[in-house]
Design a protein around this nucleic acid. Sequence first.
DNA 1: TAGGGGAACAACCACTGGTTGTGCCCACCC
DNA 2: GGGTGGGCACAACCAGTGGTTGTTCCCCTA
Lengths: 364, 364
Amino acid sequence: MDLESVRTFVAAADAGRFQDAAAELAVTQQAVSKRIAALERDLGVRLFTRTPRGAELTIDGQAFLPHARDLLRVAERAASSVLAGRRPLRVDVIASRSAASALMRAFHRAHPEIELDVVMLFDVDTAVAALRSGAIDATFRAVAAPGRPLPEDVESARVDDEPLELLTGPAHALASARSVTVAQLTGHRIWIPGIVPGTEWAAYYDDLIAEFGLTIEATGPNFGSDALLDTIADTPALATLMGGHTRLVWPAGHGLRRIPVTDPTPVYPHSLLWRRGNPHPALPALRAHLAATAAAPGAPGTWTPPWAIPHTASSPPPAVPAEPGARPALPAEPGAGSAVSAERGDGRARRRPPALPYRTTQVP
Amino acid sequence: MDLESVRTFVAAADAGRFQDAAAELAVTQQAVSKRIAALERDLGVRLFTRTPRGAELTIDGQAFLPHARDLLRVAERAASSVLAGRRPLRVDVIASRSAASALMRAFHRAHPEIELDVVMLFDVDTAVAALRSGAIDATFRAVAAPGRPLPEDVESARVDDEPLELLTGPAHALASARSVTVAQLTGHRIWIPGIVPGTEWAAYYDDLIAEFGLTIEATGPNFGSDALLDTIADTPALATLMGGHTRLVWPAGHGLRRIPVTDPTPVYPHSLLWRRGNPHPALPALRAHLAATAAAPGAPGTWTPPWAIPHTASSPPPAVPAEPGARPALPAEPGAGSAVSAERGDGRARRRPPALPYRTTQVP
DNA sequence: TAGGGGAACAACCACTGGTTGTGCCCACCC
DNA sequence: GGGTGGGCACAACCAGTGGTTGTTCCCCTA
């Protein structure tokens, strides 16, 4: 089954005659006949009954037609997803289960008509380069990396402070605590595999360690959060830190505990970054949505690295809510299903650890 | 863009190396390389960055990947829609805006996991033949046509009595009535274009005329319900009858009135027909749903033709609600969007009146 | 610096998918 | 009732796509 045959089938079904379909597709009637015959051979059913004055759909043809239209629609959407200029809003998140992903899902629920593509880049440097080149339209990052301010043409807005929580197995010494202070964590082994030096989230953990004298082990390969949770659950001496807004596939029966950390609460400062002057019509809607829904960051009793931008910095007032004129260049067709698409980590099994810029590492 | 290239792209993205993708697809590495290159040429963007130890997705590649997966999923669903044995439940309705369509939409809302295909056949004869051949699994019809009882292997259940309503323009003599009796209709011109002699719905109107002495004009070509409503709205001397459960695209500003008909209320007796012994796992669920939601038919004060089967005839007690074992052979994938598909009449403009078995005629 | 792994390039070949020309069938019409 | 015309299928032919094998190039690694 190839798309050209399917397109021909739809054209012939609409026209009711192969000849008209051929004219519309700028081929000969014989070509249409052969394409339809090939499609029928592929599917194993007759799609048209040939009559002296045209071709009528069989029952199978009627059943197949809406699926064929779907197929063409999805193909068009796929092609437009990489079409410069009028493509969906493309947003980088730090991981598929991160708080940024949750924010994007909420945005999609609030604006289902805005088409979205979600990608996952390696670190803030990659993301900022992609922003400036126009490859992406926005990114959720904890700007700025220490010592390197954001470029002048990149704007940002603090959108979410995500408190870290301690994750332990049922036999851990702190398992029954309702909350723990940062001071209580000193001396306990905290295991966070997959930290890549040089990234902004590695810098976050570095600062956390330096500030409070924690013991964070980043050793060993990262086999994904499932393996991490298994190990944590089974190892009384081991705990890990995890973003409180992270949505996990929570394994049942492991007795895992999520315990808030206080005094102060370390928070991961998610910001939205975008290039000044990016004309994508959906970008103001995203900014307005985040400005409206984000809890006030920088709450007392929390800690962030000194290089995290304050929530008031360099961020102009959020744009007014998107009006009809600000709709995406390719408005979603009514009833055309979900307009968001993102590559989740739960796809088919990989034969080997993913290559960059993929990342399955645990992040705040 | 052809599906084979897209399939190759997904395989390469999953594997991270062209060679592994080639092995999985049983082609050579060079073939994969050429397919990917062709796809990139088609789309106009680079999808992979080639590295010494494999190929990584570019940002465009990451954005394209979920759409590519969608495309393959939809293609698979399209192919399975005509796969004998494990295809979606295929139901014939009398028209896309009919009460049967509404019932099917309600069923889909109640059981979104059951995949459905909706087709529209010409009349009860065609539908029954399709039932017996297995081309469809169920049909909503007003059985049985006069003088011809249903075949012995076809079962039926009365599922909806649809009251007819009078539809008039604002200047019609009866426009301001809250309801009209059948007797009041005598003498008024009732226009129902598109009645095809020999069909069971033509027989319904014939009986209605014979019983109450109405004046029904079936003259003129049928240009669809929009044109019908336009004419009704503008012509004070003309009215039409319409099923009270019909969902119309209601034109604003026309001043159209829907007026109940009483004493008695003519109702169109929708029944569900299916072949005895049809093993489709979703069929019991549909029957149970309809049995549970259908209003009790045959209410006093209503009229149906004498040949309409009574609601108690030949219909065994509805099957128990479908249990997990009765799920469709191809269960909907989680999060895979709507599982219902039907050819609606609002598709692309046709170049000429539709060929049979299409029908745009107005029906009860 | 040599070796190895992985993708791209080149040349070749089969077969797909287009074209033109023609035949057949049925509805319609004189 | 037979001629006519419209519409699809079949046949023959041809170009170009898309596969193969053989080879080169590049970069990481030992």
